[in-house]
Design a protein around this nucleic acid. Structure first.
Length: 592
RNA sequence: GGUCCGGUAGCUCAGCUGGAUAGAGCAGCUGCCUUCUAAGCAGCAGGUCAUGUGUUCGAAUCACAUCCGGAUCACCA
């Protein structure tokens, strides 16, 4: 039972004794800064049933609380707003609970397992900024879900086959001259990407030539020699042609080695990786089977369809006339595979919002097929990342490369840190670790602080900011606290909670109040699949701590009880910052 | 055209199960380092919450309409 629950119960009692009304929903909101109190109860909704003025109702409930509610210290009424303050003993008890709870903010198992699929790259090009948002969201959500009691399985579905890979392969065959990551000095994924770009340049040239000969552009795009060759390559691959498969394998392995480096650098990993080359043929059987039960139907050309118009969707093709799969067929099969592999209670997909429709269709079909797990399927749809210059387009080369971005961030972190000169005694390894932590802190925080559902703007100048609403600001607060804890340890000061006679400083109350919100925020971010709630929370916590830090002196206070409490508060804040940033995959430095 | 998402300070974003004079950060301007890390703190300035109508004691929040931006409606993935 939280303080809020207790207070709600007390208000409910006050209402029933004075007005003879059973109020089921007691709405509490945090009191605005300019008023005294921590919790506010709005009395307007009670005016009708009680036939009393809002201020009068507030007065009556307030008086009742002061007399009867053991946690309440006082109140004030402003118009229809009843602002309630709590006793210092209440705050101290609350803080006692928080500091005693090692697992503060971590929920016990809820006996539910969840699979979360994210990242899911194509193997024809390196990761870019858009993938970073996806990866950070997926990684952070898996940590948040774990903290809120789920058993989590992280998966990645690698898009390792298809026409796009064949394009890279074709360009490599034409222009590669046996180049390898070793001979070129390029990371494998960048090497594959280089040929993907080469393909596109050549392809566009061929289209232009055909158009110049008077062929309409649409037709030219289909007839250009290289696209035909790439399609032939895809066919050869599907037939298992040894040479094609060998090249495919070689190039993909280069790419995987490159991806592994990037994932390692950004701190992302998976429990299980699925490859589309293993799963793309799945799903057909499910459909063939369900034609019999009437879920799907055949058209004269032998293509197979489902009519989802009663769900507000359209008629959707699920198998081509030649019997081959389409995207949705494959996803149906992959989901079935996931379910038979892991039997999870929930399945999540972190996929961009351009696929909203696809997932609506997928879930509708699963439901029609009578799959009970369809109820637990959820598309975590996130918005695109835009650049100040507009949309990122990989074909037009306007993408921000993930590896480049990460190394720029590390460079910036190094420059910034060296300017300040606070860690001149660090050795090379320590410094490197710090730069990495700060760089990833800045980048992850920047991409996670925005509501995932919303489209966001990536402003390069802002993203390397280390002040204000940023990861490094919070990391800095942590490092500051750690310095205090070290000092306290040296001085032999034990954090202790003072007795009931202790009069709290307002800054101390605020700190306890914000700390107490942490578990609520963890639960909310898990429910809404929104790491941004954690990022906002931890920023608020750091801000309130910095205010406290500027306002009160920790070690030079004449009251030893105050010193010991403040050391304890600092420790609790640092731990909560560490946990909260940890939920975002961000590490914390001892010094910076 | 149908469907979906969005439009809040110069910029980037919170707030949106209706509640007080709409909040942060950045940028701009003022102060604060002989005292625990100034990557910090305090303050000033900045808003017709796209527009209109409605519901309500009360609307940035709900409903309807309009305008603007984006996504999607492939036998691509």
């Amino acid at each position: 039972m939280t303080i809020e629950d207790i207070l709600r119960e007390d208000i409910r009692k006050a209402i029933s004794t004075h007005f003879d009304i059973i109020a089921d929903d007691i709405l509490l909101q945090p009191t605005k800064k300019e008023f005294e109190g921590f919790y506010t109860f709005v009395t307007f909704p009670l005016t009708k049933t009680t036939r009393k003025a809002p201020a009068e109702i507030g007065q009556i409930i307030g008086e009742h609380l002061v007399e009867n509610a053991s946690i309440v210290a006082g109140f004030n009424v402003v118009q229809g707003f009843l602002n309630i303050s709590l006793k210092d003993s209440t705050w101290l008890n609350l803080f006692t609970d928080i500091s005693a709870d090692e697992a503060f903010g971590t929920f016990p198992s809820n006996s539910l397992s969840v699979m979360i699929e994210f990242s899911s790259p194509n193997t024809n090009k390196p990761l870019h900024l858009g993938h970073l948002r996806n990866n950070f969201l997926g990684d952070s959500l898996s940590r948040i879900l774990k903290a809120s009691g789920y058993d989590v399985v992280k998966t990645c579905l690698v898009n390792d086959r298809g026409i796009h890979i064949c394009k890279s392969m074709l360009a490599y065959k034409k222009f590669g001259h046996g180049e390898t990551p070793e001979t070129s000095g390029l990371k494998g994924d960048h090497l594959a990407g280089k040929y993907y770009v080469k393909f596109d340049i050549e392809y566009k040239k061929q289209i232009a030539e055909l158009v110049a000969q008077g062929i309409p552009e649409e037709e030219a795009a289909k007839k250009a020699p290289w696209i035909l060759e790439a399609q032939k390559l895809l066919l050869l691959w599907e037939q298992g042609d040894a040479e094609t498969v060998a090249l495919w394998r070689t190039m993909n392995n280069w790419v995987y080695a490159g991806f592994a480096q990037t994932y390692n650098k950004i701190g992302v990993s998976f429990d299980k990786t699925y490859y589309e080359s293993d799963t793309y043929l799945l799903g057909k059987d499910i459909i063939e089977e369900a034609i019999k039960t009437g879920v799907f139907y055949k058209k004269p050309d032998n293509s197979v369809w489902i009519d989802l118009s009663s769900e507000g969707l359209d008629e959707k093709l699920v198998l081509r006339g030649d019997g081959t799969s389409v995207y949705i067929t494959q996803d149906l099969g992959t989901t079935e595979l996931k379910n038979s592999d892991f039997h999870n209670n929930r399945y999540l997909w972190v996929v961009g919002n351009e696929q909203d429709y696809h997932f609506k269709v997928l879930f509708a079909i699963l439901k029609r097929l009578g799959q009970t797990y369809s109820e637990g399927c959820y598309h975590i749809s996130y918005g695109m990342v835009d650049l100040p210059s507009g949309k990122m387009k990989s074909r037009e080369g306007t993408v921000v490369d993930a590896d480049d971005l990460v190394s720029q961030m590390i460079q910036t972190a190094a420059d910034r840190t060296q300017e300040l000169g606070k860690i001149d005694d660090f050795d090379g390894e320590e410094a490197k670790l710090l730069y990495n932590q700060l760089a990833m802190g800045a980048l992850k925080y920047y991409l996670l602080k925005v509501d995932p559902k919303k489209r966001m703007l990536f402003n390069p100048e802002e993203s390397i900011d280390f002040q204000g609403h940023t990861g490094p600001f919070i990391q800095y607060t942590y490092a500051r606290i750690r310095s205090i804890i070290r000092k306290a340890e040296q001085a032999g000061i034990q954090p202790t909670i003072p007795g009931d006679s202790y009069h709290l400083h307002q800054a101390e109350r605020e700190l306890i109040f914000v700390l107490s919100q942490y578990p609520v925020k963890v639960a909310a971010s898990a429910n809404e699949f929104a790491p941004s709630l954690i990022s906002q929370y931890v920023f608020e916590l750091a801000k309130v701590y910095n205010q406290f830090y500027a306002e009160v002196s920790i070690f030079s206070d004449p009251d030893p009880e105050a010193v010991r409490l403040r050391v304890g508060l600092s420790a609790a804040v640092s731990e909560t910052i560490r946990k909260a940033l940890g939920l975002m995959g961000i590490g914390v430095p001892e010094r910076m």
